[in-house]
């Protein structure tokens, strides 16, 4: 009895009592997951605030093709975001954001391919796919810069305000597209996401440099690629939600 007791104690030992890794993931990866969870809450807060404020304003009731921007009701996004670079004056609703979505999805794919190459210790492939990911991120940022520029400067018609003056574009106080809060939310939500893309590109560049100089090859594993990969996919994930809740609905 006295002999067998320690054995049963050993087998009954809970996985949470130490000595093993219950999540079977490294500290860094686990912390990245929990950071992303908290970040998901931040983005949910912003997007749900959008829903809350939109819901507290009247919706546009008339026929869709007769839509005109007004401070009196919330705008229909496909009527606002209809411009594409080099195609001035052509009504192409949501096409440009659609392209941006594709760019971000593609850069997410090149990121998984980099992770996959990392598992195989293939430095040449990791370098190649990291470079494509960085390029995708930069292209997305450039698109967003154009989008913001267009939003801020506005259309040729502008909006006739109640005091008779015409206002073009948008700032945090007034915008030609709808209630002031619409532009504020545009700047906050796409801006906060853009900041994430920007920092993601920055981190990717650092990791890319480390790959090229062989830091991970010497370390014996490319787990760092997986960690930044998680962050990069999260940025893509958030954009999927922004695309739906800000641009489509």
């Amino acid at each position: 009895m006295a002999v067998s007791a320690p054995v049963t104690e050993e087998t009954k030992r809970n996985i949470w009592e130490g000595g093993v890794s219950p999540f079977k993931a490294s500290y860094g990866k686990l912390m990245m997951w929990f950071f992303l969870l908290s970040d998901a809450f931040t983005f949910s807060g912003l997007l749900i605030t959008y829903g809350f404020l939109r819901y507290s304003y009247p919706a546009y009731e008339g026929p869709l093709n007769a839509f005109k921007s007004s401070q009196g009701y919330w705008p229909i996004p496909e009527k606002i975001f209809d411009a594409v670079p080099f195609l001035h004056g052509v009504h192409l609703p949501l096409l440009f954001v659609g392209i941006m979505t594709f760019i971000l999805i593609l850069s997410s794919v090149t990121m998984v391919l980099a992770v996959e190459s990392g598992h195989r210790m293939d430095k040449r492939d990791v370098t190649k796919w990291m470079l494509w990911t960085i390029l995708g991120g930069l292209t997305f940022l450039a698109c967003q810069a154009w989008e913001w520029n267009h939003f801020i400067h506005g259309t040729e018609e502008g909006l006739v305000l109640t005091n008779g003056t015409v206002f073009y574009g948008a700032n945090l106080q007034v915008n030609e597209y709808g209630p002031p809060l619409f532009a504020s939310l545009f700047f906050f939500i796409t801006g906060f996401h853009g900041t994430h893309v920007f920092s993601g590109v920055l981190i990717n560049v650092i990791i890319f440099y480390n790959v090229v100089v062989g830091t991970y090859e010497r370390r014996g594993h490319y787990e760092m690629i997986e960690k930044v990969g998680l962050y990069w996919h999260f940025v893509d994930l958030v954009w999927v939600f922004v695309f739906t809740f800000f641009y489509l609905i």
Binding site: L113, E116, S117, H119, R120, M121, D122, G214
Partner: peptide, 17 residues
Amino acid sequence: ITEVKPLPADKEKIKKL
């Protein structure tokens, strides 16, 4: 140190991605 031999790519896995 520089002689790390990469493993061959798993075509099936890449196709899935």
